[in-house]
Design a protein around this nucleic acid. Structure first.
Lengths: 176, 176
DNA sequence: ACGTTTTCGTACCGTTTGGTATTTTATTAT
DNA sequence: ATAATAAAATACCAAACGGTACGAAAACGT
């Protein structure tokens, strides 16, 4: 997972992973069956360990402004995301994934849009969000903006510019 | 250029290009020297043929609103961009480019930010843009948003969602 | 018409990829 | 202690990659 996390996905070969993990190649195949199986396992672990934090932020039921601020901080400055995001990296190269990993990516993607949609509708009910766009559209927008920020960080862009971009992008939600 | 344009960069091999172009491999190497040379030539041609249209939109000196609308249309609906953008694809995988292509990508990237900065400052002088952020920051923001839209189109997202996302992203500039 | 030079493509090189057949090592049963 | 069994690594496979050596073919000067 660490290898997929900090390098470009296409630069991580099975051979390299075996070397890093100190494991023989047949041992890896006995455990995961195929590269697809390994990547799916990595994605599942990553979702449980890292992406869960994003969903936790949404579930806190804080103010719209507070939630946006927390998301901005997490995506643009939190050390956890320093080398980008496994999920968005996989999604960016979706067509070269195996079927199991692709299914996992699509499930997380639509799950994220659902979670953001639910959050927005709750804030609308609370009178907190007054935007006139449909919640799913704005939810998709938020997911893409977070993905953009994480891709920028993976590309080595400096934190200040990433934060500025994401603040700009989210400001349209706050004041709609 | 067409191959790099409509497929993922990593899926386009020298062998495949030779097949598509009906050219032998040594002939290609005699012409371009290396894969790096070929990609640089592709990038230069693409910049002259396609990216120039974006700069042309900025140079028209139209209203802020008109220019944003033109950019939105071009990035999210124009058939030219149907399969994404060679420049942004290359920039996304910058670290695996050869030195000449990477230099070209960086030159275009900073040139784009400069062009957008110049445009924004002109609109500010005209009293058209009243944002309080520094122009280069917003310029970078615009470049990234256009890149996001083109990446979405390359990934097969439907036109309406791409447009909605880009409209949302640009609305913060118009009303600031 | 012939020898020279230049252009061009076939056939190859070494390396790396994901994935396995086979052999070696460790464990257990008697 | 030894035979049978389970586990794990070495050594290998075919395919594809970027790149090139070298022989064939065309063009050219005379």
């Amino acid at each position: 997972m660490r290898a997929y996390w900090q390098d470009d996905l296409a630069d991580v070969s099975i051979n390299a992973i075996c070397g890093l993990a100190g494991v023989s190649k047949p041992a890896l195949y006995r455990e995961f069956g195929s590269e697809d199986g390994l990547m799916r396992a990595v994605l599942d672990r990553y979702a449980a360990q890292v992406l869960s934090e994003i969903f936790a932020i949404l579930s806190r039921d804080g103010t719209l402004a507070d939630t946006l601020a927390a998301l901005i901080h997490f995506a643009s400055e939190d050390a956890t995301m320093e080398t980008g995001c496994v999920f968005f990296k996989m999604r960016a190269g979706k067509h070269r994934l195996g079927p199991r990993t692709r299914d996992g990516v699509e499930a997380i993607d639509s799950g994220a849009v659902s979670a953001f949609t639910g959050f927005l509708e709750a804030r609308r009910a609370a009178g907190d969000w007054t935007g006139d766009q449909p919640a799913p559209v704005v939810a998709r927008y938020m997911v893409e903006q977070i993905g953009l920020a994480l891709a920028q960080r993976a590309a080595g862009e400096d934190t200040a510019q990433v934060r500025a971009t994401l603040e700009l992008a989210f400001s349209v939600i706050d004041r709609a």
